[in-house]
Write a protein that binds this DNA or RNA. Structure first.
Length: 327
DNA sequence: TCCTTACTGATAGATGCCTC
DNA sequence: GAGGCATCTATCAGTAAGGA
């Protein structure tokens, strides 16, 4: 059955691919019939138009992914990624994944910021800095969604995407929040928190972490190792004695290799250093290890003696000795 | 009144210890 | 060595207190 005849009869178009018979059985045989068929065909075209319009409406809000030259895309000025986020096994894994598939499967989001000297469009990243950097280093086009975004929208998109991935360090979050406040994107932490759907207390803590003096941050092996709850204790230490902390931080920053993050925290805040705890000391009897002497995190001395190594009589003598010793 | 900070409790994940 | 359990740690949500 032909498409034309179908439309003339106003019935389903499902079989449009069916081969057209050479002589349609229901072709109009009179002028009146031909006119009627023509009117009916018109209605069929209208129906088709309606259908196409409906399909277009369906795609109206859909996002279109384009392949862009990564060199024409710039990092966001609110970019929160520390340079160390673009190094290491995780980033190499991402690069390998993108290289394997030939493109970034999950597109990045950008906004158009103008045109370069050559008249070609240039873009700013809303989110997907690591995917962009990977494509840039691999020399392949980056799949991107282009959207028209205001500064606040760009910031919110970037923040939301990062938070959903939960791979942004507390310090990086703090830097991002602080920059948004400093740039005047949001009038207050409260407004920022409500805009991105975060708790104001948590935003405040992150900003506190990012507001630490640079020398304090540099004392750590990496800013990424800073933890949320360290912000308040480090700030208290800096407020209490800024000069002494700055000098100490500079000394710690100059160490190679740098001390572990927890050790740096302990040194800067005057807390108990992790490394100050002694390693367990083994007890030997007749050349065999029969127990050890240790210290728990609270500083309690713990003496362990293997079962069977201390007969009841000797255990009693040991208790008496310790009681006398500690009097 | 609004904003920031500090504190508390809940939850999830990590780690260590014990038993088999 | 594996599995179960307890403890510790980090984060987040909610809220109260203090300051401008």
């Amino acid at each position: 059955m032909s498409k034309l005849t179908d439309k003339a009869k106003g019935i389903s178009f499902d079989d449009v691919d069916e081969p057209t018979p050479e002589v349609p059985a229901d072709r109009p045989r009179t002028a009146i019939g031909a006119i009627s068929a023509s009117i009916a065909m018109g209605r069929g075209v209208e129906a088709e138009n309606r259908e196409l319009r409906a399909k277009l409406e369906h795609f109206e809000d859909a996002t279109v992914v384009e392949l862009l030259d990564p060199k024409r895309i710039k990092p966001s000025r609110f970019a929160n990624r520390h340079e160390l986020s673009f190094a290491g096994a995780d980033f190499e894994g991402l690069k390998a994944e993108i290289a394997g598939t030939g493109r970034n499967v999950q597109p990045i989001k950008v906004r158009r910021i103008g045109q370069g000297a050559d008249g070609k469009d240039e873009f700013e990243i809303a989110f997907g800095h690591r995917r962009h950097r990977a494509c840039l280093e691999l020399g392949i086009p980056v799949a991107a969604i282009i959207d028209e975004l205001s500064d606040a929208q760009l910031f919110s998109e970037m923040e939301r995407e990062n938070r959903e991935r939960q791979d942004l360090s507390p310090w990086e979050q703090g830097v991002m929040y602080k920059r948004a406040i400093d740039e005047g994107l949001f009038p207050s932490l409260r407004k920022l928190a409500s805009s991105i759907g975060a708790q104001v207390g948590n935003v405040s803590t992150a900003v506190q972490l990012a507001s630490l003096p640079a020398e304090v941050v540099n004392a750590f092996p990496s800013p990424l190792s800073l933890q949320f709850r360290w912000g308040s204790v480090l700030k208290a230490a800096v407020d209490k004695n800024p000069d002494a902390v700055a000098v100490l931080a500079a000394e710690l920053a100059a160490m190679t290799p740098k001390l572990p993050a927890k050790e740096v925290l302990a040194r800067l805040t005057g807390g108990p250093a992790a490394s100050s705890r002694s390693a367990p000391t083994a007890f030997k009897a007749n050349g065999k290890v029969v127990g050890n002497w240790d210290q728990d995190p609270k500083g309690n001395v713990v003496v362990r003696i293997k079962a069977g190594a201390l007969p009841a009589a000797k255990e009693r003598r040991l208790r008496e000795f310790l009681e006398k010793l500690l009097e």
